[in-house]
Design a protein around this nucleic acid. Structure first.
Length: 883
RNA sequence: GCGAAAGUGGCGGAAUGGUAGACGCGCUGGCCUUAGAAGCCAGUGGGGUAACCCGUGAGAGUUCGAGUCUCUCCUUUCGCACCA
């Protein structure tokens, strides 16, 4: 055996072996438990980043572990290849996105291979491949036939200079990223998928996803946002009626009969003192037509981005329309305002304002001098103070006051009574409101899957017939940032109408890339099937047994995939409803951020590898010096690794310098996988050293001759040291099995193996029996580590005298005999504080344990003169004496 | 703004409601070496000669016992529908 560990040699040999054996090619096998292990596929951005390394290592550890547990494992890989970054690169390099994307895939595939992942590469797919996206188109048309896909108008970010639609990411502080122009909201026609038809199912089924993190289920439930409430209509007062009548005569579009709102707090109805409508609301638009100041305000609301975070954090502003509605019970005139915080996309685009019982309405009322009417009092009777010296709103449920016939009812009963009364008069009804909106999939962008529709002047909108699919995206175009080059590509746009054969125009919008990623996990099961989107093999492999990906996908991607799977189920294509049985959400990878301000005011970010940090007396980074130009740089704290902050670490350099096993070991050991991981060069070196020591330890052991591991056969009694090493060996095996298999805490599994390894280092028995015990300890250490550092363990396993590869080794069971102990230590507490320890045989009775505890001299000192009032005994663990 | 999570030594982190700080990084001392690196041994939360005392973002509460459960607050991170 070679004396020194050489990562490059070891890793090349192991990877070659796996490839020659076709070790990770998966086949359907009856009677064997299948395990479909999937990490979210990468966007081919150019190079792997540490987040990828973390993601794919987690998946690989589980895949290899489950294989050794006897499962038929499938671990595939593919490319989420359509998207915006390719267009940005195309603009920057003046090259088509296709070329850039395919080059990146080639490079990153090599990087993934160098990590030694147990992937079945025969199923590789890329979403920009026409043989993949044709099925996007095919399924879109099936959904359209069933009314699951439809056309409607939607709001987008519009750059008035570039005359182009911007992604939210391209809006920076309300301005276009290239032009700096103030972004506007603009309505355009687009296609939607009716995800809301599945809202109830998507919400209810969250309860069945026991293999998902609770927090993800909560986030999805909140996102879907079911709320029960009352929809009611406020009649227009004379002023509003007159205006709307004028408009009607002038031939304006249909104007609704009353002002409809949705509220979860119908019990506060008598406290309504104003109404607020969104700027896009028809009533606001109507009022704006005769009031220049109002029109200017509405115009102002139109500026800014469509992002909800921007809308919600913007200053709450409003302006009266001068119009009024009538209260449904009292007939009071209520003024209508236009407000920038009312969303046209939620509910009816109008809300009733109850300042006394809603925080936002309260602030709005103070600013606009609107009366505040208390109609709900706390149930404990302290109602007389409410409504006097106003400190703030009372937003809780209570008992109704000043509410006509409903006065005295508790809130919940009042909601029912008010809903009933409204319904009798035909003014309202109870209904469920969802926060979830239908999924707009149209993108006015080039590098995506074409929407398979044709616009014909005679026949209208016509579907591309199935036998003409796929509608292939021309790959030679180069976008320039202004509009969609597809729309300027005559060969693509001009076509024949499939119905009438006349000249027609092809739809040039492409699909949201979330469409591509909403079903790729199904395609892997039958990746070579050219006649159908999926075949019967999908029933064997699906659902995914373990899905692994970043927490940032907790809502959108996972919800869209759940929806898409249901849509496919209802099209009769798959039998499952839920695609992912178990979900694991990994944390982000962080690194320090360093920057400095350039003379022209821009901020320049310096890669942490090029910075020598300076620390204050508390050892905190306060600043640093660039190693390149020796000028000072400022510390900005930790942040997720990103191109924009220039704080990424190139895994390639890491693999070249230390090897894939070290990179994998570091990614798994530095933090629990669900939490953020802080990059640390020192931490990497620590793992590298560990592999060297492990190698040397095996080398020193086998240089004395390889022998069969101790397995409990007679051969003379074991020494105390040998028994202790065996106990730790099997304890470690049990812990690693539990930590990888159940808890998924790879960091503690690695720590346990290191503990075992430290004990092996201190173990000095040299006779045959003693060496057999060390052989056993080393073998189990290697097996335990093999899913995480597979290359070095592949070689070490052979060196320990095995023909069969470690990946084909069954995962061992801990030996209960080795684990048995003759004495266990119990902790003794007095009033919950640690005061002593006693040794007892396992399973000692409470009385025995308490007597032993009382006999301990330190314990006695703390008990002196006090009576023991109570004693708690936790078997084999602890005694607590209460005095 | 709304939704979700996280805060423990100098640092990353460990701890089924039961010994706070496993394991590692860093640091200190020693061995080895011509020297350095690597390696090996020992030590390493704070205070105190010691017995002990204090310590898990802040404040309350539940409990025999709280880093862990509950509430309030503070800070940080993630998501908010056209980044993927």
């Amino acid at each position: 055996m070679q004396e020194r560990y050489e990562a490059a040699v070891v890793e090349r040999a192991a990877q070659q072996y796996w490839q020659q054996q076709g070790a990770f090619t998966a086949r359907e096998r009856a009677g064997v438990r299948k395990y479909y292990c999937l990490s979210m596929f990468p966007y081919p951005s150019g190079r792997l980043h540490m987040g990828h390394v973390r993601n794919y290592t987690i998946g690989d550890v589980l895949a290899r572990f489950m294989r050794m547990q006897g499962c038929n494992v499938l671990q595939p890989m593919g490319w989420d290849a359509f998207g915006l970054p390719a267009e940005n690169a195309a603009i920057a390099n003046n090259r088509p996105p296709a070329a850039w994307t395919r080059e990146n895939i080639g490079y990153m595939r090599g990087q993934l291979r160098s990590l030694g992942l147990a992937i079945d590469w025969s199923r590789e797919l890329a979403t920009c491949d026409p043989q993949y996206y044709r099925w996007n188109q095919w399924m879109f048309l099936r959904m359209r036939e069933r009314g699951l896909a439809y056309k409607a108008s939607g709001v987008v970010n519009w750059d008035p200079l570039d005359q182009t639609v911007l992604a939210n990411e391209q809006v920076i502080d309300g301005r276009g990223w290239r032009t700096g122009a103030l972004v506007e909201k603009r309505e355009i026609p687009m296609y939607y998928l009716r995800i809301t038809a599945y809202a109830q199912d998507l919400l209810a089924a969250l309860d069945t996803l026991s293999g998902w993190p609770e927090r993800v289920r909560l986030m999805q439930a909140n996102w879907i946002g079911r709320s029960e409430g009352v929809e009611l209509s406020f009649d227009y007062a004379a002023d509003a009626q007159a205006l709307l009548g004028e408009l009607r005569e002038a031939g304006a579009a249909a104007v609704p009969a009353g002002l409809k709102v949705f509220t979860t707090r119908a019990d506060t109805l008598f406290g309504v003192t104003f109404m607020a409508v969104a700027a896009e609301h028809p009533l606001a638009q109507a009022a704006g037509r005769r009031d220049a100041r109002l029109a200017a305000f509405i115009e102002e609301c139109r500026r800014g981005s469509t992002m909800e975070a921007d809308v919600a954090t913007a200053e709450k502003r409003g302006m009266p329309t001068g119009l009024h509605v009538r209260h449904p019970f009292t007939g009071d005139r209520i003024p209508v305002f236009v407000a920038n915080y009312v969303l046209m996309t939620y509910g009816e685009g109008a809300v009733m304002g109850v300042p006394a019982h809603d925080e936002r309405d309260f602030e709005f009322a103070l600013r606009h001098d609107i009366p505040i009417r208390t109609v709900v009092a706390p149930a404990n009777g302290a109602c007389e103070n409410v409504g006097e010296a106003w400190q703030g709103e009372y937003a809780e449920y209570g008992v109704l006051v000043n509410s006509g016939a409903f006065t005295g009812l508790p809130s919940l009963a009042a909601i029912d009574a008010i809903a009933d009364a409204l319904e009798r008069e035909g003014r309202g009804r109870k209904r469920v409101q969802w926060r979830l909106r239908d999924w707009g999939i149209s993108r006015q962008r080039y590098w995506g899957c074409p929407i398979p529709l044709i616009h014909c002047e005679r026949c209208g909108e016509v579907a591309v017939p199935d036998d003409q699919l796929p509608v292939v995206l021309p790959e030679s175009l180069v976008p320039d940032g202004a509009g969609n080059p597809l729309a300027r590509c005559a060969e693509f746009v001009s076509c024949r109408c499939p119905q009438c054969g006349g000249a027609a125009r092809r739809e040039t919008d492409t699909m949201d890339t979330f469409v591509d990623s909403s079903w790729y996990f199904l395609r892997y099961a039958s990746a070579d099937q050219s006649a159908a989107v999926v075949d019967e093999r999908v029933d064997y492999w699906l659902p995914v047994d373990q899905y692994i990906g970043g927490i940032e996908h907790a809502i959108l991607h996972l919800l869209y995939s759940r929806f898409w799977t249901r849509a496919m189920r209802d099209l009769g294509l798959v039998k499952i409803s839920e695609p992912f049985a178990n979900l694991f959400t990994q944390g982000m990878v962080l690194n320090h951020i360093w920057s400095r301000r350039l003379p022209d005011g821009r901020r320049q970010y310096i890669n942490p590898t090029d910075v020598q940090p300076q620390y204050d007396q508390n050892n905190e980074r306060v600043g640093g010096v660039s190693l390149v130009d020796h000028l000072p740089v400022e510390y900005e704290g930790l942040g997720t690794m990103s191109k924009s902050k220039n704080n990424g670490v190139d895994p390639q350099a890491l693999v070249e310098q230390y090897g894939a096993d070290t990179a994998r070991l570091f990614a798994m050991s530095a933090a629990p996988p669900e939490q953020t991981l802080e990059w640390s060069e020192e931490g990497v070196i620590g793992q590298y050293r560990f592999l060297h020591r492990l190698w040397k330890s095996v080398h020193d052991h086998v240089s004395g001759g390889v022998l069969r591991r101790y397995s409990g056969e007679p051969g003379g009694p074991l020494s105390e040291a040998a028994r202790e090493l065996r106990r730790l060996t099997h304890h470690t095996l049990a812990k690693v099995t539990h930590d990888i298999g159940r808890r998924r805490t790879f960091n503690t599994a690695i720590a346990a193996v290191r503990e075992l390894f430290n004990a092996i280092g201190h173990y000095a028995e040299v006779d045959a029996l003693g060496r057999a015990v060390r052989q056993e300890a080393l073998e189990i250490a290697v097996i335990c580590l093999s899913p995480i550092a597979p290359h070095v363990c592949h070689t070490l396993w052979h060196e320990l005298g095995h023909e069969r590869a470690v990946i084909d080794e069954p995962w061992p069971e801990p030996d209960p005999q080795a684990l048995a102990q003759s004495l266990v230590e119990l902790v003794v507490q007095v009033n919950g504080k640690l005061r002593g320890r006693v040794q007892l045989p396992p399973g000692a009775k409470s009385q025995t344990a308490i007597e032993a505890a009382l006999a301990d001299p330190t314990v006695q000192r703390f008990l002196a003169g006090k009576a023991v009032r109570k004693s708690i005994h936790v078997p084999d663990k602890l005694v607590n004496l209460v005095v």
